[in-house]
Computed example of a mutant assay.
Amino acid sequence: MYVADQTWPELGDYVASESVAVVPLGSTEQHGPHLPLSTDHVIAESLAREAASRTGFLCTPTVNVGVSPHHRQFHGTMWVDAPQFRDYVESMTRNLTYHGVDRVVYVNAHGGNVQHLREVGRRLRDAREAYAVEWMWNDSIPELVDELFETPGPHGGPKETSMMLHLDPRHVRSERLVDAAENGLTDWSDPETVRYGSRTFYDAIDNTANGVLGDQTDATAEKGERLFEAATEQLVRLLRWLDDQPFEDLMPRDHVDPQPGSRR
Results as ranks from 00 to 15, higher is better:
Y2T: 01
V3R: 06
D5M: 08
Q6W: 01
G12K: 04
G12Q: 08
D13P: 00
S19T: 13
A21H: 09
V23S: 02
D40G: 04
D40C: 01
S46Y: 06
S53K: 11
W79E: 03
Q84W: 03
Q84V: 08
Q84N: 03
F85A: 01
S91F: 14
L96Y: 04
V105P: 05
Y106F: 10
V107G: 01
G112T: 05
H116M: 08
A127W: 02
A127S: 13
E129H: 06
W137S: 07
N138C: 12
N138F: 13
D139V: 15
L144R: 04
E147Q: 13
F149K: 08
H155Y: 00
E160C: 00
M163H: 03
H166S: 00
L177P: 05
N183H: 11
G184M: 11
D187E: 12
R195W: 09
G197T: 02
R199D: 09
F201N: 15
Y202H: 15
A204L: 08
I205K: 14
T217R: 11
D218E: 15
A219S: 15
T220F: 15
R226D: 12
T232W: 04
Q234E: 12
V236C: 01
L239V: 11
L239P: 02
R240G: 03
D243S: 02
D249Y: 12
L250N: 03
L250K: 00
D254H: 08
H255N: 14
R264Q: 12
